[in-house]
């Protein structure tokens, strides 16, 4: 969890992690984030790096900093929907790129994905039934 990939700036990796938390609603619209120092401690990184992450997310409109109060997830619904779309797009892009490199065709990717999702859903239902 605390390990970072050294091929990419840590502040961007952290921004990515926060974006995921927002999309998965673990961080809700309008919710206050940890202070810079608290965040630095929970990820074991330089407070200046956290500051940079927050500034970057603020620049992108995902966070809002209120003077003297801290950083909050934006309450602008539109921006959050946009973020959700962007994160989805990025993940799919990575996935597709890997599949393409291995030589899978578009049809193979789509049918494979559909089968996988069907299997997963069935698994979920069987769990539901036991409950």
């Amino acid at each position: 969890m605390d390990e970072f990939n050294s091929s990419k700036p840590i502040y961007l990796q952290l921004a990515d992690r926060i974006n995921r938390l927002i999309v998965s609603k673990e961080l809700k619209a309008g919710q206050k984030l940890q202070s810079v120092r608290e965040m630095a401690l929970s990820y074991n990184v330089n407070p200046n790096t956290i500051q940079r992450t927050y500034s970057e997310l603020e620049r992108e409109g995902v966070l809002e900093t209120r003077r003297g109060q801290g950083s909050f997830v934006t309450e602008q619904e539109e921006r959050l929907i946009q973020l959700r779309g962007k994160m989805k797009e990025e993940q799919i892009e990575t996935f597709v790129q890997v599949m393409r490199e291995m030589g899978f065709s578009s049809d193979e990717i789509v049918s494979g994905l559909r089968d996988h999702l069907l299997k997963m859903n069935k698994g979920d239902e069987s769990v539901d039934r036991i409950d």
Binding site: S6, S7, K8, P9, I10, Y11, T49, R52
Partner: peptide, 10 residues
């Protein structure tokens, strides 16, 4: 350090 990560991926 971040510059090294960014420019050389190391």
């Amino acid at each position: 350090v971040e510059h090294l990560h960014e420019s050389e991926g190391l």
